[in-house]
C-alpha cells in the first residue's frame, strides 16, 4: 500500500476532535450523522470537515453542536436541517442544533484521508496548489475568492484547466 509509505501527521486540533468522538457515550449518534454531507461537497460529511463538533443526548433530547466554516456560509442552515432530518429518520424527534464559534473553525481539522477524497473530487486541499486533474504543480491563483466562501480559484498551467482549492483558514 502506497499510503503506508508515509504516515501523515494529524494536527492536534483534529486529534482532540477524534478523541471526543471516540470517548463519547453517544457513538451511535455520531455514526448516524456520518450520513450528513456538506451540501456543496457531497463526498465529504460534516464530520470529515470538522463542522460537527459534538453530540449529546439527555432525556430523549439530542443536542448537536456544529461550527460554521465561514461567518456567512449559507450551507449552515441547510446542514442544520439535514441533521434534524437524519436523526428524525432514526427515531430522534427532539433535536436541537446549536452553533459554537470557539474554537474557530480551521482547515487543520481536515485530515489526510479527507484531503485525498477532496482531491479525487476535483478540489485541491488547503495546503496544496497541485492540479487535481493532471497532478502538475505548475499552477497559478486566479482569485482567492472562489465559487463558495471556502474555495479559491486556481488555474493549471500544464493542462490549462481551472480548478478549486480549499482555502487555508
Amino acid at each position: 500500500m502506497a499510503a503506508a509509505a508515509s504516515i501523515p501527521i494529524m494536527p492536534e486540533a483534529r486529534f482532540a476532535l477524534n478523541q471526543r468522538r471516540q470517548n463519547s457515550q453517544f457513538a451511535e449518534l455520531f455514526d448516524l450523522l456520518d450520513a450528513v454531507k456538506d451540501p456543496e461537497i457531497p463526498v465529504l460529511s460534516i464530520w470529515d470537515l470538522g463542522i460537527l463538533q459534538d453530540v449529546a443526548c439527555d432525556a430523549g433530547r439530542v443536542e448537536v453542536t456544529i461550527t460554521p466554516t465561514y461567518s456567512g456560509c449559507p450551507a449552515m442552515a441547510q446542514i442544520a436541517e439535514d441533521i434534524v432530518a437524519c436523526l428524525a429518520d432514526a427515531g430522534y424527534d427532539n433535536v436541537d442544533v446549536t452553533q459554537r464559534l470557539t474554537p474557530a473553525w480551521t482547515t487543520d481539522w481536515i485530515d489526510a484521508s479527507t484531503r485525498k477524497r477532496l482531491r479525487e473530487y476535483g478540489i485541491a486541499g488547503p495546503d496544496s496548489a497541485v492540479c487535481p486533474q493532471c497532478g502538475s504543480s505548475d499552477t497559478s491563483v486566479i482569485s482567492e475568492f472562489g465559487s463558495t466562501s471556502c474555495k479559491a480559484l486556481l488555474r493549471c498551467n500544464s493542462c490549462l484547466e481551472p480548478f478549486d482549492q480549499f482555502k487555508r483558514l
Binding site: 461567518s71 456567512g72 456560509c73 449559507p74 482569485s143 482567492e144 475568492f145 465559487s147 480559484l153
Partner: peptide
C-alpha cells in the same frame, strides 16, 4: 472573478 470575490466578502460581512 471580481464579481464573485466581492459577493464572497459581502457574505462574510453579512455572516458577521
Amino acid at each position: 472573478e471580481e464579481d464573485i470575490a466581492i459577493a464572497n466578502a459581502g457574505l462574510d460581512y453579512l455572516g458577521r
